[in-house]
């Protein structure tokens, strides 16, 4: 598909970033997953914070983003 770009032009091919340099940033990936959990599932199937306030607050987005709600 995109092979034409190689060879005929001098587009420098980006060197892959070594996994060891990406790894430390995966902490942020976990934070993103935690954020998604709060939008998608907190105070539904499982609960970290007591009450239903988080669930009620993000309620409409939870439905519209495709997560099971009520």
């Amino acid at each position: 598909m995109s092979d034409t770009a190689i060879g005929s032009h001098a587009i420098p091919s980006p060197a892959p970033i070594p996994v060891r340099e990406i790894a430390p940033w995966l902490v942020f990936g976990l934070l993103m997953l935690l954020a998604l959990y709060f939008v998608g599932a907190e105070e539904g199937a499982t609960s970290i914070i007591p009450g239903m306030y988080v669930h009620e607050w993000v309620h409409d987005s939870r439905h519209l983003l495709g997560f099971p709600c009520h």
Binding site: G29, L31, A35, F38, V39, W57, D60
Partner: peptide, 22 residues
């Protein structure tokens, strides 16, 4: 409420997307 959920969702996916891209 909708704004919060959507913004958190999109920003989080943006970050995850960037990590996969890297």
């Amino acid at each position: 409420g909708l704004l919060t959920g959507v913004m958190v969702y999109s920003t989080a996916f943006g970050g995850l997307f960037a990590l996969v891209f890297s």
